[in-house]
Design a binder for these strands. Structure first.
Lengths: 122, 122
DNA sequence: CAGGATCCGGGCCGATACTG
DNA sequence: CAGTATCGGCCCGGATCCTG
């Protein structure tokens, strides 16, 4: 988060901008997820990027991290109420994107996109 | 625009991601804008970034460029129906951002943000 | 299992100067 | 007025290896 914004949109994009954060947001609701689980769900992300994005989202108050003192270690990530409220807004944007891809001509959505239900709000 | 997306959201962010595009989107509707006018409205942007973003948005089918063969030259930029439909979705995101800034503690919105009406859909 | 540390390239983005 | 051209910093994001 920055210091000064001239528009709420800047803040929103600051918080979920970049390549990964909105995809992570999808996966953390309604069920909490473990680190490894999340890594499998967010296709293509590296551990470095995942932990980095999670830490930023935690600092921004969107994500809660719950560590259990066990062996082997277990950590669960979930959305805060603020995170949930934001995730709820992304549905229309996702639908717009799908329609856009379609109109722009073609088979740009990969086949398993539907079965992965990445865009279906939980 | 890329080749393959696993989710409509990726496409949406591809199209309005980055620092400037959503701010430009605000300013191109409902009234068309000239280049210089736009440059003044989008505070802080350089000519290079402005023309670069406009070209990308034009290639993505969000923006229409209309050049008039006059001296001195005149060029007007406006939103396509697709661009308008996207802009319409950004309102809630902007409100979320403003509320977020407020809750996160403070005076992060610069004073003239309100008077600039950057977040008020035209 | 859940990370940490390090190296590295590409491109986003800005500054500056110039043009038809 | 509406751009072009060039230079360069920074940091996003990936690859790889390592640890409690």
């Amino acid at each position: 988060m920055r210091a000064v914004y001239s528009c709420g949109l800047e803040a929103t994009f600051d918080v979920i901008g970049g390549k990964w954060k909105c995809l992570i947001l999808w996966r953390l609701h309604p069920d909490a997820r473990r680190f490894g689980e999340l890594k499998r769900l967010v296709t293509g992300i590296t551990e470095k990027m995942l932990i980095q994005q999670l830490r930023e989202m935690e600092a921004d108050g969107l994500v809660r991290r719950q560590a259990y003192p066990e062996i082997p270690p277990r950590v669960e990530y979930s959305l805060t109420p603020m995170g949930i409220s934001l995730k709820e807004l992304l549905g229309p944007l996702c639908e717009w994107g799908s329609k856009y891809i379609e109109q722009m001509g073609g088979q740009h959505l990969c086949e398993d996109a539907e079965t992965q239900t990445q865009c279906v709000p939980g």
